[in-house]
Amino acid sequence: MNLEDWYRQDRLPHIYCAGCGNGTILNCTLRAVEELDYKKEETTFISGIGCSSRAAGYTSSDSLHTTHGRALAFATGLKLVKPRQHVIVFTGDGDCSAIGGNHFIHACRRNIDITVICMNNNIYGMTGGQGSPCTPYGAISTTTPYGMQEQPFDLCKVAEAAGANYVARWTSFHVKELTEAIRVGLETPGLSFIEVMTQCPTSFGSKNKMRQVTQMLDMFRDNAVLKAKADRDAAKGILPSPEKFVVGQFVRRNNPPLGVEAAK
């Protein structure tokens, strides 16, 4: 199958704003699926609510667009009944870590064999730009007009601590690395969590001095520190500067997964 065949052509164009990074992430996901030569009838996309979660509706195989925060619980049921299915969940920072935080932790703990792609745009985009658990400290949103006063989640650390077999972070700037990470995630049994930092120029960038899409992508390029470099710096006692964030693969392990068909 070609990459184009993985798109539900009669639903395009998508609803994403000009400059949104979600389309890039969908593209990287479908490219990884295509590289693995998955069959449509073996592949299911599941999502919750929010901009990220509209992605499932643009894929051409079976897709379930569920309730806010609960996609992982729906996915758990589907995967346990049909373990042969490749299950991919699209979620966002609000969907995954606020309303869906408990389901996220428990899906990681169960290490259920699904791949979770979290489009982290640091904001609630669909509802017009409210603060989320991933809005950076000090950032402006419609519900943090004087600057976010809470600390954000590090979703990758949460996933790793809760038990996911594969955890990685990339950005919408790092398309090659992201595609590769999704492919590795899909091939790793157990829960694979891939956090993708993505730009929301409409609701986040515009309020946080990154009005141009390119400013956000430049920020991802300039502030992303490779895991290996971050580890070297840490060994030398160099403290990371607060605007930097680490990208790369954080964990890949082989703990017993749930929802994998027992060998006959």
Binding site: T66, F74, G77
Partner: peptide, 26 residues
Amino acid sequence: GVFIQMEDELASAAAIIGGSWAGART
């Protein structure tokens, strides 16, 4: 069949809906 104890009742209802779309009586 498969039994699973979920993290709460929100998840229980979600899981049986997912299982139903996979073709099972749930």
